[in-house]
């Protein structure tokens, strides 16, 4: 039992290193490399930049990057169209089934270049690193099993379970005041 506990603890802690790193400044060549996505011809899916792997997938499981993504989500008005993932004039994100693909490269292209049915391009409003942070964050919104690194709730109105509570697995509440 102890061996298991120790092994589990060691695994958690090892994961912790990567999860807690706060890389505040990327060198410009790295940023430039992060922009080198190779999407498929229809701009859905494709090959992520090689540098992502070399950096250790910092936008997948790093708590700081994910929380920065969550901050950008509200700072850059994503909320106005997509609400807290429930959608409004933009489609919902909570279900994790997205029009233009939910893989990182598709998302990156969606955010950077925009999409034809109303998604504006953010390439001139966000830096490449910020777009990747948003990509990482968005991928925590539509999941039904939460990661430890996913952000918790904001100090805001409660709208749905936070990303670390796997919002997509939440039950639909009953309609109020019926």
């Amino acid at each position: 039992m102890r061996a298991v506990a120790i092994a589990g603890l060691a695994a958690l802690l090892a994961a912790g290193c990567q999860r807690e790193e706060r890389d505040l400044r990327l060198d410009p060549p790295v940023t430039a490399a992060l922009d080198q996505v190779a999407p498929m011809a229809n701009a859905v899916g494709g090959a992520p930049p090689d540098v992502l792997g070399a950096l250790g997938e910092p936008y997948e499981g790093n708590a700081y990057n994910l929380s920065e993504g969550k901050r950008l989500y509200s700072w850059f008005n994503c909320k106005g169209c997509h609400a807290d993932g429930g959608g409004a004039s933009g489609p919902a994100l909570l279900d994790g089934w997205w029009r233009y693909g939910s893989d990182p490269v598709s998302l990156f292209v969606t955010l950077r270049d925009g999409r034809q049915n109303g998604m504006p391009a953010y390439g001139d409003k966000l830096t490449t690193e910020q777009i990747w942070q948003l990509v990482g964050y968005l991928r925590t919104v539509g999941v039904s099993s939460a990661s430890f690194a996913a952000p918790s709730r904001n100090d805001e109105m409660q709208s749905r379970p936070a990303e670390n509570r796997a919002p997509a697995s939440a039950e639909l509440g009953t309609p109020p005041s019926r």
């Binding site: 609400a83 807290d84 919902a92």
Partner: peptide, 21 residues
Amino acid sequence: LEADLRDATAARGFGNLLRGL
């Protein structure tokens, strides 16, 4: 079809009201 009503603020807040519709 598009809104996910698990988000109470979805669709200008109507998500909260229209759960079940």
